[in-house]
């Protein structure tokens, strides 16, 4: 269970939040409300105050990279550092089988970055997170820019991860998508977070 107490940073009022394994929570809010700031604060990517823990393991007791392997954040516009898709996977050969459920061919692992479309990049960035099997996924608009079929495929992949016990906190602007994946939702406005059921 991800436990957050009094998490705050400039632009974000202190907030408490619990996310049990196997559960998804959707996050809504206008642009600039602080959704990304919130996800980045949980992943410890920006200076922040407050307590985060995963089970008994407290965030401040472990090196930040260890925490981020357990609680992984995926940006709305993910970055790339290698020339080929496979350069971004820990084990490109094993990672191949993650691709077909996301409606990508296995040999996409050998593609060059230059030929990828936005939607392909987004799904490959997700595959890169899934490969590392984090306990909590913090996904910033994981399906923006995907067509309806592909969106459903991504949601199906996420649901199997939830069934396996991973937890998910994701940003979306589509209330229907929120309802398909989650029962609880966070509404963020001007740095204030309120929780509601969907």
């Amino acid at each position: 269970m991800l436990r957050i107490r009094g998490l705050t940073r400039p632009g974000l009022e202190p907030f408490d939040f619990d996310l049990p394994p196997g559960e998804a929570v959707a996050m809504f809010g206008p642009s600039g409300a602080g959704k990304t700031l919130l996800l980045r604060a949980i992943a410890d990517l920006d200076p922040n105050d407050g307590a985060c823990a995963l089970g008994d393991a407290r965030r401040e007791d472990m090196p930040a990279p260890d925490w981020r392997r357990l609680v992984s954040y995926m940006a709305a516009e993910p970055g790339w550092w290698g020339d080929r898709v496979g350069d971004h996977f820990a084990d490109p050969d094993a990672g191949r089988k993650l691709l077909p459920p996301l409606k990508l061919p296995e040999d996409a692992m050998g593609w060059t970055l230059a030929r990828l479309s936005t939607g392909e990049k987004q799904r490959l960035a997700l595959a890169r997170v899934l490969e590392r099997a984090p306990r909590v996924m913090l996904l910033d608009e994981p399906t923006s820019g995907l067509d309806a079929d592909t969106t459903r495929a991504v949601e199906a992949v996420l649901r199997t991860r939830l069934d396996d016990g991973a937890a998910l906190l994701f940003v979306t602007h589509d209330i229907e998508q929120g309802k398909r994946l989650a029962r609880r939702a966070l509404f963020v406005d001007a740095g204030k977070v309120r929780e509601r059921s969907l």
Partner: peptide, 22 residues
Amino acid sequence: RERAAIETMLALGYDRAEAFRP
């Protein structure tokens, strides 16, 4: 220029030395 790449590496659990190496 490389901000997105560096932050993505950090978010995936690479340490700062690895993220800055290139």
